[in-house]
Design a protein around this nucleic acid. Structure first.
Length: 273
DNA sequence: TAAATCCTGTCA
DNA sequence: TGACAGGATTTA
């Protein structure tokens, strides 16, 4: 569910409330959620650790612990990470409970059980999905020429290319569509076939859309809420995603829905060529 | 490059 | 009841 702007919003909402808190108990109820480690081993490693910082890489949320160890969460489609008062009232599909000093629990709730957690010891090689991540589209070093290099020679459609986390980190189905609409690029255009000027527009659209979405604290279509349970507001600003049949905000032409790379794809046939 | 897979909930 | 869902990996 959450893409870069949502994970960034969760990070920002949790950071001030998690810093300096120690983990008193770690209850892992979904074995397969923990990649590469037994839940008991994860618990052993977490107990007594102090949360020193929060970070984000692509769609991963990173808890920074002492000595440089980190915990990486990926919320996939329906995962929610919430900080709430410790107590017996518990939501269905709660698969992780970190009891923190100060009387609050960091809980992970995920009806579809797609989410994953990685324990990343300091100085050890990152597991493949994290190690393979492409550049951050909002990073200072993400230039139009870097984007041009990523797209060059690719025969596949531009939309699935934007979704490939090994090429670019953090863009998901909603923002891919919004970015392509902003850039005026049709989702099925071959990625390597974009003109220099179009790559420039795509680069600008990427940074503008993602930055705006963070300002609005993300998009809440169904499940997404931040670390305090607050929905985002960017669903009010979506230009194409989920708007099939409605008029394009730029030109009035009805928005269309097609399937590209197996994903529902919304675009304006008049604005996007 | 597409489809199947992992899962459950919601909506038409 | 069937289609679809903000993701990603594996298989064909």
């Amino acid at each position: 569910m959450p893409e870069l702007p949502e994970v960034e919003t969760i990070k920002r909402s949790l950071a001030p409330r998690l810093l300096g808190r120690s983990i008193l108990e770690a209850d892992v109820r979904l074995r397969k959620m923990v990649e590469g480690m037994e839940p008991a081993e994860l618990r052993r490693r977490l107990l007594g650790q102090v949360i020193g910082g929060l970070d984000r890489r692509g769609k991963y949320l990173l808890l920074e612990l002492a000595a440089g160890d980190r915990v990486a969460f990926h919320l996939r489609m329906t995962g929610r990470l919430l900080l709430r008062p410790a107590g017996p009232a518990e939501e269905p599909h709660t698969y992780l409970v970190f009891r923190l000093a100060g009387g609050e629990d960091l809980v992970y709730i995920d009806p579809r059980k797609f989410g994953r957690l990685y324990y990343l010891p300091a100085g050890e090689e990152l597991p493949p999905p994290l190690a393979m991540l492409g550049p951050e589209p909002l990073g200072a070093d993400f230039t139009p020429s870097l984007l041009a290099g990523i797209l060059a020679g690719r025969r596949g459609a531009i939309k699935p290319t934007l979704l490939d986390q090994r090429l670019l980190a953090g863009i998901g189905n909603i923002y891919a569509d919004e970015i392509l609409h902003r850039a005026g690029v049709h989702p099925t255009r071959p990625a390597g076939g974009l003109k220099e000027e179009e790559v420039l527009r795509l680069h600008g659209a990427m940074r503008a859309v993602l930055t705006e979405a963070i300002c609005y604290r993300g998009t809440s279509k169904r499940d997404y809420v931040d670390g305090e349970g607050r929905p985002g507001d960017y669903q009010e600003r979506l230009a194409v995603y989920g708007r099939a049949g409605e008029p394009c905000l730029a030109c009035g032409h009805p928005i269309r829905r097609i399937v590209v790379g197996g994903r529902g794809t919304y675009f304006c046939p008049a604005c996007q060529v």
